[in-house]
Simulated scan of single mutants.
Amino acid sequence: MNIDESIILVVDDNPANLNVLFDIFGDMKYDVLFASDGESCLRLVETESPDLILLDVMMPGIDGFETCRRLKAKERTKDIPVMFMTALSETVDKVRGLEAGAVDYITKPIQPEEVLARVKTHLTLRKMYRMLQDREVHLSALVEEKTRMVTNVTMTLVNALESANKLNDSDTGNHIKRVGEYAAFLAEQYGCDVDFVKRIRLYAPLHDVGKVGLPDRILRKPGQFTKEEFVEMQQHVVFGASLLSGDGLDEMAQNIALYHHERWDGSGYVHQLVGEQIPLEARIVAVADVFDALVTERVYKPAFSNEKATQIIAADAGKHFDPAIVDIFLAYQEEMFTIKMSLQ
């Protein structure tokens, strides 16, 4: 890490002090800029980007304390370290400077060895800070790219697995999209954080991917299942969880596939979980999935009206569904119906 080519801005109204500092830095490779007062300093930093500012305290016009406060108030200059140069030695004055945003003090009369040592220390810290910033930006870009890749792969998986189901249901594609949007909306209103909302939108469409493991005689049957067929059909949640398990896969996707047919009262399948034993993401998707099934025409049923679907879901609060999520659904019926209409 090379700090020799750093830019230093020296601000002092006393020519003698400027000459002393010029001599101190004369043998160094620093690019040294000079300003005679606070206003000149503030104008100069609009076009230059110093790595360190040595700032006199007692100056005509605005003093060093106010100059420092103004530097720290601007986005462009707030991170530039400021070292005060002053003959003031009282603790109260030093505290005032630190509160204004300074990182250090150089006491007058100026001692060359002290100045060079302190300058080198703060330039090194400045360079390290910039390296950390660059690394954070790089890591953030990598995370964003990885997220885009996961999103694309997941949506490809959704489309491929749903196509493989070969259901007699031409609306399957839009159904899974709507479930994702319903789930994200309900999660947001529930108060889930941005990351949770983003992930549930991504993974909710995978809720029924396990149906690829069911035979056509189950998938395509238009009427009621026999008891044995119903038990066989329930295994699609196990198949789905198996498809979505493994290192590197988000547990939320597996939870949605495995638990979205559990019921709040424990009468669901296949683990008969009760209440909050069911992961939140699965409780949300349960409402989203059933709502869309109710208001959509299928080969085995007509589409229910919005009012009828709402009545059914409301009646199942505390039985099939988490009451808190049903409350949100009821409070935002119009928005849910708008999502449905936008993805017909």
Rank of each mutant, 00 (worst) to 15 (best):
I3R: 03
E5P: 03
S6Q: 13
I8E: 01
L9N: 03
V10A: 00
V11A: 00
D13F: 03
N14P: 13
N14I: 08
A16I: 04
A16Y: 03
N17Q: 14
L21V: 09
G26M: 07
D27V: 05
K29V: 08
F34T: 04
L44A: 07
S49E: 13
D51A: 12
V57W: 10
M59F: 09
P60N: 02
F65V: 04
E66N: 03
L71C: 04
K78M: 10
D79C: 05
P81E: 04
M83Y: 02
L88T: 04
L88D: 08
D93N: 11
K94C: 14
R96W: 02
L98W: 09
G101Q: 00
I110S: 01
E114G: 07
H122P: 00
L123P: 10
L123V: 07
T124D: 08
V137D: 14
H138T: 11
A141E: 08
L142C: 07
V143T: 04
E144T: 08
E144R: 13
K146H: 10
K146N: 14
E162G: 08
E162T: 10
K166H: 10
N168S: 11
D169Y: 02
N174C: 07
G180H: 13
G180Q: 13
A184P: 11
E188P: 05
E188W: 14
V194T: 12
V194N: 10
V194S: 13
R201K: 07
L202I: 06
P205L: 02
L206Q: 03
G213R: 00
R220S: 06
R220Q: 11
Q224H: 08
F230K: 13
V231T: 10
V237P: 08
V238N: 15
F239V: 13
G240V: 09
G240E: 12
S242M: 11
S245Y: 04
S245V: 03
G246D: 09
D247R: 13
L249E: 06
A257Y: 10
A257M: 04
Y259G: 06
H261P: 10
H261K: 08
E262W: 01
L280N: 04
E281P: 15
E281C: 15
A288M: 11
V295Y: 00
E297D: 06
A303D: 10
Q311K: 14
P323W: 05
I339T: 02
K340G: 01
